[in-house]
Structure formats: C-alpha cells, structure tokens
Nucleic acid binder design. Structure first.
Length: 364
DNA sequence: TATGCGTGGTT
DNA sequence: TAACCAAGCAT
C-alpha cells in the first residue's frame, strides 16, 4: 500500500472508503442517546462521571469483560469509596481483593496511582491527558478515557472496540498491532466538536453490541452506509491480525503442607513479574521440563504423598501443568523461612490467584 | 515493535 | 476442544 512506503501520510484514509460518505459523529451520538448501556460506573445522561469511578472501572476493564468486572468494582467502591481511601489501604489488602481478576500489575499500579494522585495532585485527578498519562498504570487508552469521560476533554480512548470499528469503517488492510498508530490517527478524524465523553462511550457500546468481532449486526448500525467493510461484504475480516505465537506448556510441582489444625503453608511471590506479590503454596519453579528430583524443592522434610491429581491452568503466555504432593505435619511444626501458616479462616484475606484456588482444592 | 502479563466465557 | 476474545500497560 502507498501509505506503508510513506509514513508521513499516516492519517490518510485508505481508498476503499473514499467513495462512501464520511461517518458522522452526530449519527453515532444520536444512536447512543437511544441505546446507551447502563453500567455501574457510568453517570446519568447529561451528567459527568466521578473521576475516581472512571479511573477504577477503566483499570479493571483493561483486557477484562464488563461481566467479570462488575462484582469487583462494587466491592472496591464499597471498601474504598474515594481515591484517598484507596491510597490509605495496604497493598496486601488491595491484592487480596483483586485476587481472581488477573493481570495483577494492574492492582499494584492502581494502588500506586491512588497514592500519586494524593501526593502529586492533592487527591484530585488531573484533567489533562498528558498529566494522566504520567500516572502509574495509566497508558494512552486510560488517560484518554478519563480525560474524555470524567472531564469531557477532547480525547480518543482507542481500545479494542474503537480499533475494530475504525478498521471496518476504512477497510484497513494493515494488520494489528502494526496498524495501531494509523487506527489512532483515523480515530481522531472521527471526533465530534463536543460531547467527547459520550462519543467515547458510544464507540465502545457500538463495538460491544453492534460492531462485534463475530457476526456484527450491521443492519442495526448507524454507520452502515459509511462503512467500507460492510460495503465490501466481509466486515468480519477486520481488523486484520498478525499470527500469534503458540502457547508452550510448563511443568511444576505444588507442595501442600497441611498442619494438624488445618493451617496451610503459604508464601508470597516476588513483588513483580508473574502473579507478583500474590500468595501461593510452595512449589518448584515452573519450567519446560518436569523437575528431575521432585522432593529436592520441598519446603520441609515430611512424609510426602504424591496425589493422583494434577492442576492445569492457562496463563496468557503459557499453560501450566502442576503435579501435587501433600504432607500432613504436627501442630507444632515451625514455618520455614519465608513461609507462614495460614488457617482455613484466613484464606479469604489471602491474595490467592486462580491457579492457587485450584491447587487448594486438594488440601483435604 | 515485541514480549510478558490472568482469567473466564464463547464458539 | 483448542482457539479466540475482553474498555491495555510496562519495558
């Protein structure tokens, strides 16, 4: 394509769309006024949303569905009703309440961001996209989303929905993720003169309910007459995506140490990286090959039993296959260095990721 | 620009 | 059932 050889012409629309009338922001806003979804973090029509609500929901919604986020959002808001309360929380508690939601760096950054808002901005979120972008865990999308939705600033929060809608409108032949810059540039050309927050949410609602990844409901789309992909007959083809790498499998052994009173031996993972700061039962490293000498990594000497069960779990970039060994030890057994005993009643307060919830099914 | 980083629902 | 997908960010 000509544009690929000439990056300076980034915002130009591909020729496939050139013969259609341009999409009108007013048409989308009119559709939004009739079909807007009611979501817990949204303000009533015509009102501006609380920046903290927007912030909290946007962080939780990163790569996560609305249905999954719902209960977590309600719990966080009840527990920490404003940014000052969240800033005053302990990280361990934030992680324990985030447990199960995944991408745990978000929880660490959420907490760090709340503290930054208090320390740098006196407890009020900045309104400028650039200042928002400087906050921990706030990237280009989230900065634009807060600016537009909470402050009605002119901004284009280009998420997966926007990318899909824009790629189809222009029948963009470039593949993701390479196409991201061009999609953002094209998205900016769609912005209205006002109602930036409504427009942002309208694009997301359109992508979530009409311009869906599979079987888009083009007949109901306010922009069907402006859409090059629809005109071409294969809207589902867009956005084009680069091939993904295969997902390897790693092996490991998890050690369940159960004290006579029911307490279980637990440790915390390193603060960063996979499941950073989360709680786990001791285990071998998770590697391509199963450990040669299983009990060499056991946290303590005991009468170990290999369980006739395995735990499988899929992470974003590898699948994990865990063997399980269990030992029952006397009530007086001291916890090895770096470990702690957690009674059954203490599980709720622990930051166990989903894979550990699966493992802990086998303590009995 | 590519990779690391979770989870659960859908097809 | 394996693949795909969901309001991305940090490095």
């Amino acid at each position: 394509m000509a544009d690929a050889a000439n990056p300076a012409r980034l915002p130009s629309a591909p020729s496939a769309a050139s013969r259609l009338p341009p999409p009108s922001p007013a048409a989308l806003l009119a559709w939004y006024d009739r079909h807007r979804r009611r979501l817990p973090w949204r303000a009533a029509p015509g009102e501006r949303a609380d920046p903290y609500h927007v912030f909290l929901s946007e962080i939780m919604l990163q790569q996560t569905t609305v249905v999954t986020v719902g209960p977590y959002y309600a719990d966080f808001l009840a527990r920490w009703p404003d940014v000052g309360a969240l800033a005053g929380a302990r990280l361990e508690e934030v992680l324990s309440r985030w447990a199960g939601l995944g991408y745990y760096a978000r929880a660490r950054n959420l907490h760090a961001c709340a503290r930054a808002v208090v320390e740098r901005h006196g407890g009020r979120f900045p309104q400028e996209e650039a200042a928002l972008l400087a906050l921990p865990g706030v990237g280009p999308y989230t900065a634009a989303a807060i600016a537009a939705i909470a402050f009605d600033r002119r901004a284009a929060p280009v998420d997966g929905n926007w990318e899909r809608v824009v790629a189809r409108l222009f029948a963009l032949e470039e593949t993701l993720p390479k196409a991201k810059a061009r999609l953002k540039a094209l998205a900016l050309t769609l912005l209205p003169q006002a109602r930036f927050g409504d427009f942002a949410q309208a694009m997301m609602d359109l992508g979530a309910t009409i311009c869906t990844p599979r079987k888009p409901a083009c007949a109901l789309c306010p922009w069907r007459k402006n859409c090059a992909a629809h005109a071409g007959g294969t809207p589902e083809r867009y956005p084009l995506k680069a091939a993904k790498a295969a997902r390897p499998t790693r092996q490991g052994i998890a050690f369940l140490v159960v004290r006579a009173d029911g307490a279980v031996l637990v440790r915390s993972r390193p603060a960063k990286g996979l499941l950073g700061g989360m709680s786990e039962v001791p285990s071998t490293p998770w590697e391509t090959q199963a450990p040669a000498d299983p009990l060499a990594h056991a946290p303590l000497a005991a009468q170990w039993t290999a369980l006739n069960a395995r735990v499988s779990h899929v992470f974003s970039h590898f699948a994990l296959d865990l063997a399980l060994w269990r030992a029952r030890v006397p009530a007086a057994t001291p916890a090895p260095a770096g470990h702690r005993w957690v009674p059954r009643a203490g599980f709720e307060a622990e930051a166990f990721p989903s894979v550990m919830v699966k493992v802990l099914q086998y303590i009995d």
